[in-house]
Design a protein around this nucleic acid. Structure first.
Length: 825
RNA sequence: GCGGAAAUGGCGGAACGGUAGACGCUGCGGUCUUAAAAACCGCUGGGGGUCACCCCGUGCGGGUUCGAAUCCCGCUUUCCGCACCA
């Protein structure tokens, strides 16, 4: 007897390995996640950032994708036609490194990784529509990068210019920022420097102003702020300073009202006029300084806390507003990439200029006096950047600076005098897309001695990456040395010509992939306009905060550029954005192989099943926050799942022939209250509190497990509802339970349960009685209690009375549904 | 450095300006068992106590408010991004 009962229990215990495999197979056979355009239903496009195929799916991928899947499934149960695609961001540096260090071709390495990761992704049980998979390193994808490049080129959005790159003189190759370790080449340890190279740019700055507008999109405020700061709009004026050695230095200043206080100019070390202005006696020092600056990163150069360095060129310029002769210096904190690469230094009113002037003994002149005090350059300890009135400024003496008044008047005057003009500049720079690498999209340009720069005609796309590339251990791009690739004929004159050997930044691929998913195999253009009309733009985008500025800015730029080319008819690619946090190791540190704190999702799936992993990831913390992994924590979720399994399977075949007792009615109310709160939670991606509510619900069911309530309609409603509420979170578990409850296939084609507001409403609440803001009593009262009744009850409370002894009541504060606060004198 | 964010028990976290610590973990005690595991039940911020009670408590220092974890000002620490990693 005992033995067979135990066996029966064991045979019917929760076996995720069995049910997960079973349902994944059935879902695939019945293609329930395949989606097509359906104008009869509202669409919902949920996009989660596609992974780089680095090798194995790690827990971070799960953390991005599993809750996204739950959100997408929830929308589907609400009746939306939901598109939830997946693909691979397949070009990039690691594949090329594997080729160099291990002799594996980047294509092989990448495709093998994709094969493995695809399997791992399937184990998650997500509703990805695999028929729409995209892989960016395949010609059917990257030819459209080339096509976009050509459209941009034709429309002045792609251009070539010199820009600095990290150069290793030993390897004779360009290095990425991450390949430069403490100023040295990661491969050979040689000290590296920045060298100018002709490279391709996309003119994102044309859209700087529009990119500052976030109308119609619901993005986290912090991302919007970061993008605003990244674009860095400044209003000011451009002013010309004539030099004595010929040529003029143009500076941009946000404070034209301080022009009379400009006592020297500072050029970026890379500024073209440095060469002209430098006097013979200053030359050795200047050249040494320029060489030094080329070894420093921008972060180092612009650090405001380090000691100011710089060198006098020996040259002078004229301050256009007062004719004063002022020296021209160079300093590394001035960057060629911002403004004009030259600044006028006003040490009295700019902190960096002040420190520079103090370091080198340059004059400081006060031209803005704050009201009620007098600044003296000799005794000032820092620059004064506040308001006041102009002094030592010729015709403008006495002009108040408050409200930008002085800036407006001086700018107008500069324009009148022909000395300068009002201007807006941006910190945002044009997007440098050239990479001196093999594993990327070839830039479709041909150089002909006779015809110059010639774009590859559209009908000759794609320009294919040569397969038989040689990967030198130095890292020199194999395209450069591939004669068959480089040598071609000019499309215009038919003469001998050379191909561009630079490839594109992988951010080009990810700037429009959201549209390729809509018609992944369309070959008449980058996307089928009909599919775009139905699905685009993305309704919900989810991914890491690390993409706040670059990827998300580039994708916005692409959408606006494609709109202006007539390819799209909307302004923004992603209507809503959500950034998930990161999962740390059990030691609260970032997961890394060297720390040995990496959690492998494959192991967890094998041991506990995908549903438990999914649930735990959603339970661990608020999704936008993330947090440390805990083996103990996931064991708790495993217990929860087993309890759900036991309660539902044990009572699945129970007849609902019992009477609806008070306990059953209370359960019914709890069921509806749970639907209400859980729906609100999942709508806002509050998965952790959603699961906590479900745990409370299950704890209650557990308490009733051995009572008569299990034989009631209320119990059946409760277990069916629980299964439906779990469906987005734990899709396999829910499907299996649904089947055992006798529900029709598939639980994922059912509607999200709705609640009866009357049943979900509470009948009483706990009225808190405070005296002077401190809790003194709690009273169970009906929800429809009036203010007067609540106050009377509070005043009558013996516990409150104790604290009211000998005091005068000044006032009472009533918060409906919550509390009464009695305030005494 | 610049830009962005965060800080609550032993741990992860919960909390429309209104009961701080839901839910889970850990720990302690118990039920069941020859025993253990599992499962189930109870307790679990600190201090005091006359044990149906009081005081303290949300990184630190101020402020606003009848009332502050929550809002404001000033700090500290930690994390993320900084344009060729993706």
């Amino acid at each position: 007897m005992m033995a067979s009962a135990k066996q029966a229990v064991r045979r019917d215990s929760y076996q995720p390995q069995v049910i997960e495999r079973k349902w994944q197979k059935i879902w695939e056979e019945t293609q329930i996640y395949r989606v097509v355009e359906d104008p009869s239903r509202p669409k919902w496009y949920h996009l989660t950032m596609y992974p780089y195929p680095s090798g194995d799916l790690h827990i971070g991928h799960w953390y991005a994708m599993a809750p996204s899947d739950a959100a997408a499934r929830f929308k589907r149960m609400l009746g939306y036609n939901v598109l939830f695609p997946m693909g691979f961001d397949a070009f990039g540096l690691p594949a090329e490194n594997a080729a160099i260090t291990r002799g594996i071709h980047p294509y092989r390495w990448t495709m093998d990784n994709i094969e493995r990761m695809r399997k791992q992704l399937r184990s998650m049980g997500a509703m990805f529509d695999w028929s729409r998979e995209i892989i960016t390193c395949l010609p059917e994808y990257y030819r459209w990068n080339q096509w976009f490049f050509l459209q941009f080129y034709k429309n002045g959005l792609a251009y070539k210019a010199k820009a600095p790159v990290w150069w290793c003189p030993r390897c004779q190759t360009v290095l990425a920022n991450e390949q430069v370790i403490n100023g040295r080449c990661e491969r050979c340890g040689t000290e590296v420097y920045r060298r100018d190279l002709e490279q391709w740019f996309f003119r994102i700055t044309k859209y700087a102003e529009e990119l500052l507008k976030f109308d119609g999109i619901e993005w986290p405020e912090r991302v919007i702020t970061m993008q605003r700061n990244w674009i860095g709009r400044s209003e000011g004026a451009r002013v010309r300073f004539e030099t004595e050695s010929g040529g003029a230095i143009e500076v941009f200043t946000t404070r034209p009202d301080t022009l009379w206080g400009a006592t020297f100019l500072v050029l970026a070390p890379e500024h073209p006029l440095v060469e002209v202005l430098t006097t013979p006696e200053q030359r050795p020092e200047i050249e040494a300084y320029v060489a030094q600056a080329r070894r420093e990163s921008e972060i180092e150069r612009t650090a405001t806390d380090r000691e100011k360095t710089g060198v006098f060129t020996g040259g002078y310029a004229r301050n256009p507003v007062n004719g004063e002769r002022i020296p021209v210096w160079i300093a590394d904190y001035v960057l060629m990439g911002y403004g004009t690469g030259a600044i006028m230094a006003v040490p009295a009113h700019d902190q960096r200029d002040f420190e520079f002037a103090r370091t080198f003994g340059l004059p400081i002149r006060v031209v803005i006096q704050p009201e009620g005090q007098t600044l003296d350059p000799a005794t000032m300890s820092e620059a004064y950047a506040g308001d006041g009135h102009m002094v030592n400024s010729g015709p403008f003496d006495g002009t108040p600076t408050a409200g930008g008044e002085a800036i407006r008047r001086v700018t107008a005057w500069l324009e009148e005098q022909g000395l300068g003009k009002g201007e807006v500049t941006y910190r945002l720079r044009d997007w440098l897309i050239s990479r001196q690498r093999y594993w990327g999209t070839p830039i479709p340009i041909i150089y002909c001695d006779r015809c110059g720069t010639v774009p590859v005609p559209e009908d000759q796309l794609p320009v294919l990456l040569p397969e038989d590339a040689e990967f030198a251990p130095t890292g020199v791009s194999p395209l450069k040395t591939d004669e068959d690739f480089v040598n071609t004929t000019c499309p215009t004159c038919g003469g001998p010509a050379r191909r561009e050997t630079d490839t594109m930044d992988t951010f080009v691929d990810s700037s429009w992939y959201q549209y390729r998913y809509l018609s992944p195999h369309y070959d008449k253009g980058p996307f089928d306009p009909k599919a775009v009309a139905y699905w685009a733009p993305v309704d919900q985008y989810t991914g890491g905060i690390e993409h706040a500025t670059m990827h998300l800015m580039y994708a916005r730029f692409f959408t606006k550029a494609l709109r202006d080319l007539g390819l799209l008819n909307f302004d923004e690619p992603f209507l809503r954005l959500f950034n998930q946090g990161i999962i740390l190791g059990e030691d609260n540190e970032k997961m890394s192989k060297s720390r040995g704190n990496v959690i492998d999702p494959d192991d967890l799936v094998a041991e506990l099943g995908a549903d438990v992993v999914r649930l735990y990831l959603m339970f661990i913390a608020p999704w936008e926050q993330g947090g440390p992994w805990s083996s103990r924590g996931i064991a708790g979720v495993d217990r929860f799942v087993r309890r759900v399994w036991a309660i539902v399977t044990e009572t699945a075949d129970m007849p609902a022939d019992g009477p609806e007792s008070d306990a059953a009615r209370r359960l019914r109310k709890l069921t509806h209250r749970t639907i209400k709160t859980v729906t609100a939670d999942i709508s806002g991606f509050q998965f952790n509190t959603m699961i906590a509510r479900l745990m409370e619900f299950v704890n209650e069911l557990s308490a009733l497990r051995d009572s008569d309530v299990v034989r009631t309609a209320s119990w059946q409603e409760a277990t069916r509802t629980l299964t439906l509420l779990l469906a987005p979170l734990a899709p396999h578990l829910a499907e299996e339970l649904w089947e055992r409850l006798g529900g029709p296939y598939s639980v994922h084609q059912q509607s999200w349960p709705s609640f009866d507001p009357e049943l979900a409403a509470a009948e009483t609440f706990e009225l808190v009685v405070q005296v002077n803001g401190r809790v003194r009593d709690r009273l169970e009262v009906p929800v429809d209690i009036t203010e007067q009744q609540a106050i009377d009850l509070a005043l009558a409370s013996p516990r409150a009375q104790e604290h009211l002894q000998g005091r005068t009541i000044r006032r009472t504060v009533y918060v409906p549904g919550r509390l009464v606060n009695i305030v005494t004198g």
